[in-house]
């Protein structure tokens, strides 16, 4: 390891800044999956959902930019389109898992295959997407704070999507664990029969949570292509959907720990990019990429999660069944 090249302040600042940026798509997907899982639905299809969001977001932005719309506005509309595409995939998952009561593992894996192949298919079928680049959203340094030494560069010199994602963590934490809404959602994942007998519609709550969750994952995919990489290539999410599922268990369904996990992934990802760029052959950067999976396994093995796991996770609800 070339430690003398790593342990310098500029390198550290660059790694942490990039790490925060890279954490955002995964963070959005994790938050979405936490919402979905707490209501009792396990959507393993995130990788496919993110890819469809990535493609839809990028294609929309390219189309609007070609039509001479303001690039920043085009990017925001693109992000919305990504979330929309995610919700369409989520609707498919919801119909299969909730209405058809299909096994959720099977439905999820089918969703991955569908998202992977459909996004590649459309990308290849429309050559206009191959060469296209978008301009994305420029960063908004926060006045006053951005000039602070070290902290300013790392925390307060990002594009608005990064700040909004941070706020979303707080919002999700409040919504899930401090509001009546969250109580209802968690009750649906814990004991759906009780929710039904108190006059609420389990099916409707689960549909809503699956749609919102997939929408966030689709948004995560769109952030990756529209705001961060400014291009689309096939399989661009590169396993981030699976990482997100790992981090849901790592976080034990808590948004604050999800943030910690996503940041860990982001920094590890930034580090492996930089180490590869340094060109030294023997740096085992693959092990940085394994980190989220390995840590999740260690966390799962060291503390029993049974009491934390939503009791009805993955089990279809049949009316009148208790």
């Amino acid at each position: 390891m070339p430690w003398h090249q790593i342990l310098t302040l500029p390198f550290l600042i660059a790694i942490l800044t990039a790490g925060i940026r890279l954490a955002v798509p995964v963070l959005l997907a994790v938050l979405g999956e936490i919402i979905t899982q707490l209501s009792g639905v396990m959507n393993l299809g995130l990788e496919g959902v993110m890819l469809m969001g990535a493609l839809a977001g990028f294609a929309t932005t390219v189309t609007l930019e070609t039509a001479n719309l303001d690039p920043t506005l085009a990017a925001w509309v693109g992000l919305a389109a990504g979330a929309g595409a995610g919700m369409v995939m989520g609707l498919l998952m919801a119909v299969l898992a909730i209405t058809c009561r299909t096994d959720q593992v099977v439905a999820g894996i089918t969703l991955v295959l569908l998202g992977q192949s459909l996004s590649t298919y459309f990308y290849r079928a429309f050559p206009a997407l191959t060469q296209a680049r978008v301009s994305g959203i420029s960063s908004w340094p926060i006045p006053g704070l951005a000039d602070l030494p070290f902290v300013g560069r790392v925390l307060f010199n990002h594009n608005p999507v990064v700040y909004l994602s941070g706020l979303l963590v707080i919002l999700c934490g409040w919504l899930l664990y401090r509001s009546n809404w969250g109580l209802l959602m968690r009750a649906t994942g814990e004991h759906p029969a009780a929710v039904e007998s108190s006059g609420m519609d389990v099916t409707r709550i689960r549909y809503l949570c699956t749609l919102v969750g997939s929408g966030l994952a689709g948004l995560g995919g769109a952030v990756l292509t529209v705001v961060q990489l400014n291009l689309f290539i096939e399989g661009i999410t590169a396993g981030r959907g699976w990482i997100a599922i790992a981090l849901v268990y790592f976080s034990r369904w808590h948004p604050s720990l999800a943030l910690a996990g996503a940041l860990l992934f982001g920094v590890a990802d930034a580090l492996q990019f930089r180490l590869q760029a340094l060109g030294s052959e023997d740096i085992p950067y693959e092990f940085f990429l394994m980190l989220p999976y390995g840590l999740t396994l260690i966390v799962l093995a060291s503390c029993r999660l049974r009491d934390k796991t939503p009791t009805a996770l993955g089990i279809p609800y049949v009316k009148g069944d208790r």
Binding site: L44, V105, G239, W242, I245, A246, Y249, E281, D282, P284, E286, F287, L289, M290, Y293, G294, T296, L297, L300, A301, S302, R304, L305, R306, T309
Partner: peptide, 27 residues
Amino acid sequence: KRGVNLIIGTLMLNYIGILLVQYVARV
């Protein structure tokens, strides 16, 4: 031994396996 859900356990080991092959072939 540790009560790790099999779906999640096997899922996590997928990418670790894929990356191990990459590493061994590269280094």
